[in-house]
Design a binder for these strands. Structure first.
Lengths: 218, 218
DNA sequence: TAGATTGTTAATCGATTAACAATC
DNA sequence: TAGATTGTTAATCGATTAACAATC
């Protein structure tokens, strides 16, 4: 199941909730395609792959799609996350209201100096050392890394050892699993998404300063 | 010039600085390819497209690459950004130290209630209304949106009208330009990158809860 | 020279789109 | 029925990789 597809599924789902709220009951592939800017045939193909059947005249049933997409995207289970690194970005995320709407909950923060972290968010803050025990007890599977760049790699190691299987990394270092190539034994896989704000901004500066000035870089 | 290519260029550059700091003077395409996980032929092609010539025996000169990449990526100019929305994430970004290393500077924050925003970051905070004047005076081209979702679209309009040409959006709403299709007149283009933290986390939950459990979703 | 690496062209790969038969 | 929309297959497109001649 490829990354783009899953992203599209989340977008469909979000849109479908809105359409439902507006009182609609059915959609056509071209409605969804327009909304997320892909060809209607791709929408149909996505649904076809997932065995979400439509009606050759009346399109797709919104309730059915929502229900099945929720299952496919694992949305029926609780979505609990821990945060490693309780600096400004880490604590900002702990207080991020949008998570609540999406059913995502930050259940703990970890830091090397928990005594210095303000507890205003209501999320309990522990010492980094306690992560493994916490993760094992709570069976947490997803973590966010908001530590300084220099600590990112070791924090990832800590998370993986603790049993975290999905990581969202905000440090400006591209993290990867299997940095040691010899993973013949099937050690538990960990998915990592890197969000590099600096890189994003640099990309924008490029677009703005260079790409738009020259008509085309030929 | 495609998006992936520019991203690779930034990665090359970052890596080259590190190699230089280690005292190296030359690199081969396969070194760079290994480091950013692409085929060496792609590295050579990238450089070839940009007329960055190597030496058929000694590889590429690191200093030359750094210098030219800096120009191509527009790194010689100051990289000034404004932030719209001075809530927790916005103010966290204003204090984000990593920007300094990359030559990125947040020169102002805007909010609908600037009097409520703590000024600890040293970045001046103005009322949203003053954005246009500020952007015109400072010729700012890049902005970050960290307002609540409900205000994101109108904030984008405000930025575009003020003259911003590149936007990094953190609101959980996918922003696009040209929401009105009839852009026959060549209105100034604006590049938008959306960072949707909820979507990223949902993707991770999918990976962790569903994808890894089933051997393959066939 | 022999060996190694670039620069470039052709092949591959994967994802998206177009087209159209099936059918409600 | 006629019209519209799905489901699926073939065509397209773009990006990456493999291969190899050129050459330092």
């Amino acid at each position: 199941m490829n990354k783009e597809l899953i992203l599209r599924l989340s977008k469909y789902k979000r849109l479908l909730y809105k359409l439902k709220a507006l009182g609609l009951e059915r959609v056509f592939s071209n409605n969804l395609g327009d909304a997320i800017a892909v060809a209607p045939s791709l929408v149909r193909k996505d649904f076809s792959v997932l065995s979400l059947a439509g009606n050759k005249r009346g399109g797709y049933d919104i309730d059915m799609l929502i229900e099945k997409l929720d299952v496919i995207l694992g949305r029926d289970k609780p979505q609990e996350v821990i945060v490693a690194g309780c600096g400004r970005i880490g604590t900002a995320l702990m207080q991020y209201e949008e998570f609540r709407n999406e059913g995502i909950k930050i259940i703990a923060g970890f830091d090397i100096a928990p005594e210095n972290v303000s507890k205003t968010s209501g999320v309990p803050i522990y010492h980094m050392k306690e992560m493994k025990e916490f993760v094992e007890k709570n069976e947490t599977k997803v973590g966010i890394i908001t530590v300084p760049d220099s600590a990112a790699a070791q924090t990832l190691d800590l998370m993986i050892e603790a049993g975290i299987r999905g990581v969202l990394n905000f440090a400006a270092i591209e993290l990867r699993t299997n940095r040691n190539e010899d993973t013949t034994e099937n050690q538990t896989r960990c998915t990592i998404h890197n969000i590099n704000i600096c890189l994003e901004l640099e990309h924008l500066f490029y677009q703005v300063n260079v790409a738009n000035v020259l008509p085309e870089v030929t």
